[in-house]
Design a binder for these strands. Structure first.
Length: 399
DNA sequence: ATGTAC
């Protein structure tokens, strides 16, 4: 136990145990890293061909492989990327005259309903799909999915690097759409086709896997553009090009080895939106991670609780109303009560700690925060809760 | 995170 905790501080990486890759955890002791997740990193490090595992401060246990890690090896392991190949986060500028959360929340379109090329041929969102549909896969196109995926209207809050923000066309108070979504059924099918034959083993024909993988990465990016365009049109704004779009589930050939990213964003001189939670800010950062960090940075706050724990504890701790209207005053559009509890801000680590760890290890420089106004998860049950009694109580009970 | 099975 203590051995695992002390490992978190080891930088540069400790010498590898014989026959296994190095594991470096880029987190301070103040960041809770579940020991199961660190154990998964060491299991991955022991796989044939692995050379290095870099764990980000949002590390948490995944299915077989950890989430929040960059993993390098001489062979390609599809399961280290997982089923949501191409999942990522994109940020789009939005111009609206007024941004009243209650009004805008009611205008979000149904993003569980796919865009059908024939039935929805007139939908203006198709304008972003001029280059065609990767893999010809139309099922689920334009849908956000579930789990931690979301589309969020947010306002730029604190700007730490005004020059950098200005180069991205951003200043405090500006509105943005943040889209976190992936390749839906396409990536899942690609992984399943591999695992059905080879299980957790490496891809015998990396080129064949990569060809499909690359389609899923393009599909995920197109999906984020379609989602942003659907929402922009519904809110009465013009669709825009993303100012950043980073995929955090993918594998790339780099320096002669396969660099698998699972919940780890490319951090090699790129701008990245590191997602907070539905109820806390997110951070736009300038990433500058080197090889020790797998050229990667964190992709979000990272789960602190399993979904099962979050559901059990959340039901005792929160009401649906306080999760639908957060302490920040933002609204969460989510007709799925179970998902609302699973995705409660308290089920996640503190984003500020994750960012502090990245800064401490010189992997990223914060550029600005984004403050949620409306986070869309899945179609709502009914009207947003009124500005509730908690606000009233705050006014009455405190100066 | 996913489509699908229970």
């Amino acid at each position: 136990m203590s051995e695992r905790h002390s490992r978190q501080e080891l930088l540069p990486p400790s010498p590898p145990a014989t026959g296994s890759a190095t594991v470096t955890v880029f987190a301070s002791p103040a960041s809770w890293i579940e020991s199961d997740a660190v154990a998964q990193c060491h299991q991955v490090a022991a796989l044939d061909g692995m050379t290095h595992v870099a764990a980000m401060p949002d590390l948490h246990p995944g299915k077989g492989a950890p989430i929040g890690a960059a993993m390098a090896s001489t062979v390609l392991y599809p399961f280290l990327v997982g089923s949501d190949i191409g999942c990522g986060i994109a940020v789009f500028p939005v111009k609206l005259k007024r941004a009243v959360p209650e009004k805008l929340a009611a205008r979000f379109p149904d993003l569980d309903r796919a865009l059908d090329p024939e039935r929805d041929a007139d939908d203006p969102a198709w304008a972003v799909a001029q280059d065609g549909i990767p893999a010809g896969h139309v099922e689920g196109l334009g849908t956000v999915g579930r789990g931690n995926h979301f589309v969020e209207l947010a306002r730029v809050g604190t700007v730490f690097e005004p020059g950098h923000a200005a180069r991205l066309g951003l200043a405090a108070g500006d509105l943005v759409l943040i889209v976190h979504s992936g390749s839906r059924g396409l990536g899942e099918r690609i992984l399943r086709e591999h695992t059905a034959v080879h299980g957790a083993g490496p891809a015998p024909d990396p080129g064949a896997y990569l060809a499909m993988h690359d389609e899923a990465v393009r599909w995920g990016s197109l999906n984020r553009r379609l989602l942003a365009a659907r929402v922009a049109h519904a809110l009465g704004a013009e669709p825009t090009e993303p100012i950043l779009d980073q995929c955090h589930n993918l594998v790339e050939l780099r320096d002669g080895s396969y660099l698998h990213r699972k919940g780890a964003a490319p951090g090699d001189g790129r701008d990245v939106l590191i997602a907070g939670t539905r109820g806390t800010p997110s951070y736009l950062v300038a990433a500058h991670a080197g090889p020790d960090a797998g050229h990667s940075v964190a992709h979000g706050a990272g789960r602190k609780m399993s979904r099962a724990d979050a559901l059990r504890r959340g039901r005792a701790k929160h009401t649906v109303e306080e999760l639908r209207r957060t302490p920040m005053g933002s609204l969460v559009v989510c007709g799925d009560r179970q998902l609302l509890f699973e995705e409660a801000p308290t089920a996640y680590k503190r984003i500020e700690q994750v960012i502090a760890d990245l800064v401490h290890h010189d992997l990223a420089t914060p550029v600005a925060t984004t403050i949620p106004l409306v986070t869309y998860k899945t179609p709502d049950l009914g009207p947003a809760p009124q500005r509730d009694h908690r606000d009233q109580r705050r006014k009455r009970g405190r100066p």
